[in-house]
Amino acid sequence: MSKPTFQAEWEEIEKEYQQLQETHKVYRHKLEELTNLQATCSSSISKQRKSLKDLRHSLKKCPQTCDEKQLKLIADIKSQIKDKEHVFFDMEAYLPKKNGLYLSLVLGNVNVTLLSNQAKFAYKDEYEKFKLYMTIILMFGAITCLFFLNYRVTDEIFNFLLVWYYCTLTIRESILISNGSRIKGWWVSHHYVSTFLSGVMLTWPEGQMYQMFRSQFLAFSIYQSKSCGCLSRRQLYPL
């Protein structure tokens, strides 16, 4: 007598469930191994950095008593120390680390390190798409505000959107930097300044002074969105 259909389905589900439990057990074990390896690597890098710092300090005293051959050796060691520091930077891009002050204030101690190149490049692509879409929206918003010359509500919506946009950019860029992207410092600083200026325009009371600066700020916003959208990712964060 053959088994009822529901019994066969249940047995199949139970079998897959047992396999899932075994797979998850292996995953938990591998995850624990990965966490231990991460801690070991981070500790070793910190120890190496301290040793190199002490060595560099010792080398500064040597030229006073060293001959030409030793001076050449010291120069070679200093060059290798610089190379090692670059290697440490690349290693840390794949290791969990404490967030900087800005990310700590915004996100707390959440780990933002992406562990694979695929995940890092995917996040960069998302950043680029976000910037492109928002550039189009902001240009449309600025042009709309120019048509409503004395309509403060549209200005407030546009300025609030600018504040949100630049705050979001600074957070995303901080995450990219934590994952090894060498974003230009002037680019990040520009977004901090833009956040501040947008906040000033958002909270500026209605009046003659506001109307004097309004058209200039909107024109600058259009130009800024257009010029920033034209920058290639290689200009911002060369790999």
Rank of each mutant, 00 (worst) to 15 (best):
G207N: 04
S225R: 08
Q118F: 06
L95C: 04
I143F: 05
T168L: 00
C66V: 09
L37D: 14
S44V: 07
L31N: 07
E128Y: 04
W10H: 07
I77C: 05
R234I: 10
R49I: 13
M212E: 08
L236K: 15
E85L: 08
S46V: 09
T65K: 14
D54T: 07
L162R: 11
S116E: 02
S198D: 00
P238W: 10
W186D: 13
E33P: 03
L114I: 07
H190N: 13
A122F: 15
I157D: 01
E32C: 00
K72Y: 00
N111R: 05
D155R: 01
N150M: 06
M139T: 08
T168C: 11
Q19H: 04
G100M: 07
F121P: 02
T168G: 00
L73A: 09
K78Y: 10
F147S: 14
A93G: 13
C62A: 15
S43C: 04
E12C: 07
L115A: 11
G229P: 08
L236S: 10
L52F: 06
E68A: 10
R182C: 08
L149F: 14
S198H: 02
T113M: 05
D125I: 05
V200F: 07
C66Y: 12
H86K: 13
A8G: 00
T65P: 00
D67G: 06
F89S: 13
K97N: 05
Y102P: 07
F217C: 13
K129R: 11
L132D: 10
D76T: 14
L71Y: 03
F158E: 05
T195Y: 01
L103C: 02
Q118V: 08
C62Y: 14
T203Q: 08
Q235T: 08
R233Y: 02
P4W: 01
I77V: 14
S221F: 06
Q208Y: 12
R234Q: 08
Y210A: 11
A75G: 04
L162W: 01
F160G: 11
V153K: 09
L161A: 15
K124Y: 11
L197V: 15
G108W: 04
R49N: 12
L95S: 03
F217E: 00
L149M: 10
L103M: 02
L73K: 11
Q224F: 10
E173M: 15
Y166L: 03
E16G: 00
Q80D: 15
K53Y: 13
G199D: 05
S198Y: 01
E33F: 01
D125K: 10
E85D: 10
A119K: 05
Y237A: 15
W10D: 05
A122D: 12
